[in-house]
Structures are given as structure tokens and as C-alpha cells.
Simulated scan of single mutants.
Amino acid sequence: MKKLHYSTEIKAPVAKVYATMIAKPTYEQWTAAFNPGSTYEGSWNKGDKIYFVGTDENGKKGGMVSRIAENIPNQFISIQHVGILDGDKEILDGPEVEGWGDALENYAFVENNGITTVSVEMDTKEDYADYFDGTWPKALEILKDLCEV
């Protein structure tokens, strides 16, 4: 498992950045960098199950089965990925999940003089590091654009 780090500075109050990041309509816009049909099903409350889903080239639903490990509004979100979603089937163990189960994705929000720094730290399989290194900066740029209007 490899730990990746990304961050951006956004000229907007932390409350706006936090809300823009997790509100479904704007979440779907900034995460389109990862998958054009990206969305989530569930809630961001601590302890809740949440699915991060998209569709593949054949229109089949898939994604991550996750749990919100922590959510301190305007400060910190921690997502624990516990499995994968294949259509409507949760896969929580076995070879498909090896290397993903219990991976963390953490977001920290810090505001200073009207500028919010969003820091992302995530665990990933080594094979996906280049993909995330190319995609996260694009996603954070979209989030920045959404917040700075």
C-alpha cells in the first residue's frame, strides 16, 4: 500500500469548501475527473456506510464500499474503504479486495485569512499511484473553481 498526498489552496471560507466538496451536485462535478458518472450513495455521517460509485464503459455500476470513519465539519473527513461494489453486490473479502480493504482516504481543511487549504492523504495500491497522481490535481482544480465563484 502506498500513501499519496495532494493539496490545494482555495480562496473561499472553509465552510464553503467543505460544503461544496460533499454536497451531491458539486461532488459529482469535481469527482467527474475520476469518472464522468461519479456519485455517492449514503451519507457523510460518522459511522455510516457510503458507496462511491460510477459506471464503466458498458454502463455497469461499480465502486467502493466505504465507511465514514470520522467527519468533523469544516475540519476533517476520514473515509475507510472496506470493499468494492460490483453492480449491486458488495465484495468485502477475497482477491478483488486485497490491497483496498481498510484503505483510508483523509481530507483536512484549514482556513487562514480567507484561504482554505484542502489536504488529501490516501492509501492506494502501487499500480494506481500514477493514475491518482494525474487525476487528483485535476479534481482539486475543479473543486477550486467551484468554490471560488
Rank of each mutant, 00 (worst) to 15 (best):
N71S: 09
P137M: 02
N45F: 07
L4W: 06
I10L: 02
N74G: 01
A139D: 14
L146W: 00
W100I: 08
T117C: 02
W44G: 02
P13F: 14
L85M: 11
A15F: 13
I72L: 12
M1I: 01
K89P: 12
I22R: 00
I115V: 15
D145S: 13
Y51A: 10
P95V: 02
Y128K: 06
P73Q: 10
V82R: 07
T135L: 01
W100Y: 09
A129I: 07
Y27C: 13
R67P: 11
K49L: 13
T117S: 06
L146G: 00
N45G: 08
M64Q: 07
H81T: 01
G87W: 09
Y131G: 06
H5Y: 13
L104I: 09
Y40T: 02
E41V: 04
P13L: 14
T39Q: 01
V82K: 09
Y40R: 01
D145I: 10
K16D: 13
N112Q: 15
S43I: 02
G83I: 00
N106W: 10
F76A: 05
W100G: 05
S66W: 11
A23Q: 15
Q80R: 12
L4S: 08
A129Y: 09
G101V: 12
I115D: 15
D93E: 15
N58K: 08
V118I: 14
N71W: 03
N45Y: 07
E148V: 12
T124D: 02
I142C: 03
F76L: 11
D145K: 03
L85I: 06
E57Y: 06
D123E: 12
N58P: 07
G87P: 14
A19P: 14
E121Y: 09
E105K: 03
V97K: 08
E148G: 03
D145H: 05
G99Q: 00
E28M: 03
A15E: 15
V97C: 08
W136C: 05
E141H: 05
L143M: 01
T117E: 15
K2V: 09
Q80P: 09
K61E: 12
F34H: 06
T20A: 12
W30L: 13
F132Q: 00
G54R: 03
E9T: 13
Y131P: 06
K24M: 07
V120D: 13
N106S: 12
V82N: 12
F34C: 04
D133R: 03
A129T: 12
E141F: 11
V110E: 14
K144A: 11
K2G: 07
D48W: 04
L4P: 11
D145Q: 12
N35P: 09
E121D: 12
T116S: 06
W44D: 01
N35A: 05
V97G: 09
A19H: 10
Y107T: 01
D130V: 10
G101K: 14
A139L: 11
Y131N: 09
L104Y: 13
F76W: 12
K61Y: 05
G114A: 07
T39C: 01
E96R: 04
K138S: 04
I68V: 14
Y18S: 03
D93P: 11
T117G: 04
K16G: 03
G59E: 02
Y18K: 04
N113R: 04
D102C: 07
V17N: 15
G114W: 13
F132W: 01
E141R: 04
A103H: 10
L92R: 10
F76T: 06
V17G: 14
D86G: 05
